[in-house]
Design a protein around this nucleic acid. Structure first.
Lengths: 332, 332
DNA sequence: GTGAAAGCGCTAACAG
DNA sequence: CTGTTAGCGCTTTCAC
């Protein structure tokens, strides 16, 4: 089936050791032999068997990426960044969608351990680091994605979600909104919880009334559901802040379907600033996160941890989100 | 570092063979031993080393997915489908973004061969099957993604792009548009070329004048560029058909920035029907492709080829795109 | 500068 | 039913 190092050796009339040397320390083999062996390698189309190599080395050139859902635009961009960062260093990446299910996460972690990945970029749906410690114990580096690590056991690359929630409410409040609906997902998602903290903080400071609407999933269908809930509120809020753009887009659709004027009657503010925020029916104001950059940075950090070994210092990198003002928000 | 089968054996006071049997053929080992061994496995947190296993078996439980760019929404959905399809059968997937660069493709193919993937889902930027034949020669199944395979060497899952191009122009022509700009990417991309064939065919049949605007990349920035080109045309077309939604969104933005009324002055029709087409500034009419379904189907097909071996019959599955009418297109 | 051989962790064939 | 062992393809001493 596949041509092995031994085949090359036989064909080039050298020993396997020499062929291996040609591959890994070409400088120590005689020029003549080198060329001859390289010739035969090309001829036979030999590609080393990664398993065997990695079995020997004890580690691979692969990493795992566990995200809730790549088709969530924020994570799409993150994934793209991760892939670029990994590729630059010649690593391949396993894509894992957890769908925010702890069970799927568990399964994937097992798969990744089996595949002996060098490290994993992990955006856990739930905070429970036992599996992370386990991976670490197995020599697999873990860096947290989009979530800060308390303690200092791992690297993390995240966005300051508390700050994000805060500036959102401050902005709306400055615009004159003092009755705001906060549409968010399950509190078990740390980012959501933190944005919520920021929201609460700013609300308190700014004397803003917050109506919390919690939905189980953060997609646009759930946003439409949230819109219904908003319309049934005893008093209609003058602004809606959503935990992500998908929700916001759904809310917008739902509100507009009910003939509510956006932003005249209700302002809508999203979070993530996905590519399409600007091409929404009403271009969506949003809190922007540097998703691609987060991905690249995370991959970089993870791989330098993998390669530095002991000397590595864990880092907590935190990006600052910022407001992007478009047409879905308006002064009251 | 890592606990091996041998450690388990020693700890449970059985031989390595027995532990292996517990893992792979539990039915042949005595209940008592079984339980004891399983206990120790859990205790020690043993996870088999995939490399060793795969080295032995000669094949892995991984597949590769090579797409131009996951952050292209069509491929995002495809990727999600692939991942689900693979996961269902307990396969892990390597994500590879080629950026439509043959060179990057080549590199990735090498990586995937080294990782001994079982199969690859490939959306080549350029039609050149030598690498595909090579992979096949190495026992790696290849199924083409979003591109039909002539001959019958591989499976393929694609969309009938000629048909898609045709119905687009027929639709616009029925709406009364006889002067249409066709905004497309490089002809080296087969899907683009085929949509173009459909366009030309329908144009000829329907007596429609087509102005082709070719851009190097199919993203929305290039769409804005295309909009400029359209505005400089000696006579302004009454409709624009774009090779994908990203381009269409860009064109829309560019046209609207120049105060052109969409759809009153110019109708815009996209291709792909991405999630956000409906939340564009003017909800975008588009030719819809079942991207997620394509991904799932492709993974399924690939993996059944991998697992059936000789008895496998190559299949060419072709999905039919369909028109989704929204507000960016209008009767003349 | 090159070859021979041990061994990475696992499975499967064969003895017991 | 369980233990022993060869060998998957590769790297890496250690002799030559």
């Amino acid at each position: 089936m596949s041509v092995s190092l031994r085949d090359v050796a036989k064909s080039a009339k050298v020993s396997v050791g020499t062929v291996s040397n040609v591959l890994n320390r070409p400088e120590i083999v005689a020029e003549k032999t080198l060329n001859r062996v390289r010739e035969t390698i090309k001829e036979l189309g030999f590609v080393p068997n990664g398993f065997a190599r990695q079995l020997r080395f004890g580690n691979s050139r692969t990493i795992g990426l566990i995200v809730p859902d790549v088709s969530n635009p924020f994570f799409t961009e993150v994934a793209r960044g991760v892939e670029d960062g990994a590729n630059k260093r010649d690593y391949a990446v396993f894509l894992c969608n957890s769908d925010e299910s702890v069970q799927k996460e568990e399964r994937y972690i097992n798969v990744l351990i089996e595949q002996q990945v060098r490290g994993v970029l992990f955006s856990p749906s739930d905070i429970k680091s036992n599996r992370m410690e386990e991976m670490k114990g197995r020599g697999i580096s873990v860096t947290l994605l989009d979530q800060e690590q308390k303690g200092n056991n791992h690297c993390s690359v995240s966005v300051d979600d508390i700050y994000g929630g805060r500036i959102a409410i401050e902005y709306l409040s400055d615009l004159g909104h003092h009755d705001i609906a906060w549409v968010c997902g399950p509190e078990s998602i740390p980012q959501v919880a933190e944005r919520g903290i920021g929201v609460a903080k700013a609300a308190k400071a700014g004397n803003v009334k917050i109506e919390t609407i919690r939905v189980p999933l953060m997609n646009s269908a759930q946003g439409e559901e949230a819109a219904k809930a908003i319309l049934e509120l005893p008093t209609l809020p003058t602004a809606v802040f959503c935990a992500n753009d998908l929700l916001a887009l759904g809310v917008m659709r739902g509100l507009m379907a009910a003939k509510v004027k956006v932003p005249d009657q209700i302002s809508i503010l999203g979070y993530d600033d996905i590519k399409f925020a600007s091409s929404a029916a009403i271009p969506l104001s949003s809190i922007s996160q540097p998703a691609y950059q987060i991905g690249v940075t995370a991959a970089d950090l993870l791989l330098s941890e993998c390669e530095d070994g002991e000397s590595h210092q864990h880092q907590q990198i935190k990006f600052q989100p910022k407001l992007v003002e478009r047409e879905s928000t308006k002064k009251r």
